[in-house]
Design a protein around this nucleic acid. Structure first.
Length: 261
DNA sequence: ATGGTGGTCTTACCA
């Protein structure tokens, strides 16, 4: 079962790229972030006519998350229960034998700002939610745009970025706390010393110069990590004309259900 | 080439 996550920075602009990549890579389940559209604008028909199942929650102009799947989605949650957040940043579902939580973590703007405080508050709610979900669903994947580079190895210039948003100690502590609940950073597990990025700023020719960061992640519970056979950050779509600023990230999971298919 | 892009009911704001 191929599970992927991709911040598409407007699904309206990137719809054809998403459909093409999904088929090309034979993805089974894809978590999208930054769809940037209200639910009535969501291109349901484009996915349904291709034979996929979709669940989504969005808003005007900003944020928005969705799950695309070849098999049906059940027990969909479009927010963290008990956390009244107007920003559409979380969607969870059971699919293909796993529980999937798709996150678009707030960017945080800059350390010390209201947006940064919101990011940390938001992450504390995610913390509780993931802890609860993990008790209910041992086969848990937490994926998305975390807007956190976990270690200096995940940053092209850690000296220039020291202490800044995306790498600040408080954000990294939140990330580590998520792992401590019983999740594994699948990329780092496969590649302990590899420097690879999932996001490059549109400005300053960052992609061409490979000035990136690894901020998009697939965290797997231990039972899922045990059957995870492959991990890839696919930089090909970032080379596309009119690309998202993020690359899709993908794992292969050998679940019994996937093997019986 | 020490630079600046891209998305959004745009002329400001977000990333």
């Amino acid at each position: 079962m191929k599970l992927a996550t991709w911040n598409v920075n407007s699904l309206k602009v990137r719809l054809e790229q998403v459909l093409d990549w999904f088929e090309q890579q034979s993805v089974d389940v894809l978590a999208l972030q930054e769809t940037k559209m209200t639910d009535d604008q969501f291109p349901v028909e484009s996915f349904v006519s291709a034979g996929y199942h979709v669940s989504f929650t969005g808003q005007k102009t900003y944020n928005g998350v969705a799950i695309i799947s070849r098999t049906p989605l059940s027990d969909v949650e479009i927010a963290i229960p008990g956390y009244d957040d107007p920003q559409r940043r979380v969607i969870a579902a059971s699919v293909a034998g796993i529980r999937l939580i798709n996150l678009y973590v707030p960017n945080g703007a800059a350390v010390g700002t209201d947006k940064y405080d919101y990011k940390l508050t938001w992450l504390s709610h995610v913390q509780k939610y993931v802890a609860n979900q993990l008790k209910l669903y041992p086969q848990l994947a937490v994926v998305g745009d975390f807007n956190i580079a976990p270690e200096d190895l995940d940053v092209h210039d850690p000296v220039a970025w020291e202490g800044a948003v995306l790498v600040s100690p408080a954000e990294r502590t939140e990330f580590q706390s998520l792992l401590n609940l019983g999740l594994v950073d699948s990329f780092r597990s496969f590649f302990p010393a590899v420097q690879d990025y999932s996001w490059w700023d549109y400005r300053a020719a960052s992609f061409r110069r490979n000035l990136g960061m690894r901020i998009d992640h697939i965290l797997l519970s231990q039972p899922l990590m045990a059957v995870c056979t492959d991990m890839l950050i696919d930089k090909q779509p970032r080379q596309h004309e009119r690309p998202s600023d993020h690359a899709p990230v993908m794992v292969n999971i050998d679940t019994p259900r996937a093997m019986s298919k």
